[in-house]
Design a protein around this nucleic acid. Sequence first.
DNA 1: GTGCCTTTGTGAAGCCATGCACAAAGTCGA
DNA 2: TCGACTTTGTGCATGGCTTCACAAAGGCAC
Lengths: 231, 231
Amino acid sequence: MIRRIPQARERGIPDATVARLPLYLRALNGLAERGTATVSSEDLALAAGVNSAKLRKDLSHLGSYGTRGVGYDVQYLIYQISRELGLTQDWAVAIVGVGNLGRALANYGGFVSRGFRVAGLLDADPAVVGDHIAGLTVEHSDGLEAVIRKRGVSIVVIATPATAAQQVCDRVIAAGVTSILNFAPVVLTVPDGVDVRKVDLSIELQILAFHEQRKVSGGPMMAEDWAGEAG
Amino acid sequence: MIRRIPQARERGIPDATVARLPLYLRALNGLAERGTATVSSEDLALAAGVNSAKLRKDLSHLGSYGTRGVGYDVQYLIYQISRELGLTQDWAVAIVGVGNLGRALANYGGFVSRGFRVAGLLDADPAVVGDHIAGLTVEHSDGLEAVIRKRGVSIVVIATPATAAQQVCDRVIAAGVTSILNFAPVVLTVPDGVDVRKVDLSIELQILAFHEQRKVSGGPMMAEDWAGEAG
DNA sequence: GTGCCTTTGTGAAGCCATGCACAAAGTCGA
DNA sequence: TCGACTTTGTGCATGGCTTCACAAAGGCAC
């Protein structure tokens, strides 16, 4: 019901590969800034923090953009990955929910530099409406549908409280949006064809806590102390 | 070099399962708030947005906590998952970098409610030091090591600009921290035994853009237009 | 031109995760 | 106490992802 993305494999690019392309892109941009003209899969893999064989296989899904014996042309590869990810076009993004997180996102430079343009900031709280953030004026979320339609918004970021998220989600889908990035800690229910990705800050922290617990407590003597407690 | 977490499988809990446990926990808390006493794997899976067979297999890695013919006791399962994730203890977290994102994280309720306590806010910018956020006073990052040691910080959140992240990372590791949550858009290099998880807001957006592009542009006539361009 | 050297692109193998389908196990009503 | 019903826990098969290892391919020196 969520995360049904069979489109990714239509031309044979695995989801796992797509998820890493932004990583490569970032590493390549870093190399380009330092004036590097070409890079080997080994070096690029190191910069991106992945295995070099995996990198080569990932890139091979896009085409044969490398030169044997030399490596990859940095600028050319940047262009190819950008185009594959659809970053050569301009995406209008609306952010719904202008709390702390929404503000952080509106000011986040990583969006603008990657072809994303914040085209609207919306909130249901009258106390927030009218605020000026990152060059935009916060509008009331009553006008959500109008903003989406008039400004060609195709991606919506939900940064509302959990209770409001599903309602906002339903409205933006009704307005024609099919790509949603959800920061609210709820499972959104969406129809087929709508793509939802979620970021939950506390989940990552909980995963860290799991591993941290394993480290400090050694390992044994932990699986047994539940016995006889309630079961 | 990054993400080497073999500990997860030491007692046989797959990483994929660990990553979903917080999801189940959240769904269970929702059920508990509504007064539900027991829940079947089918219903819980629905609430968590996963397949019910997967849910059962995941839970089976923790033990046999269900009752056949009935389901799972909500409160008991909450306790077991919490304990498995290490959330029954109190984790002191320090947030380094108090920009927009750092502020958002400091105010994020999802941390406190899950056994995480923000024990320190640090920033290198004198203009920010002294600010009061979420009941804490921002301290200068010169005192990073002291804060970590004195307050028993075991998890550090890096929300600094990309350029400062690796330096902060090195310092907290030197101070004994082995769990890091990184929001800066860089690949952190860490020694073995240190666990880094990263959240990159723009990566998720780029993945969305990829799928969105596929939807609108149809599909054909996109793989060929690079030919003869530079290769 | 020729041969060596570097690096890509990919076949193949192994591993992990997913999901089906069902036996085992426990509840509940009579 | 018994039988029918519900739901868990899991063996198994399938598919995708990762990694190794190497042949193919191209540059570069001479």
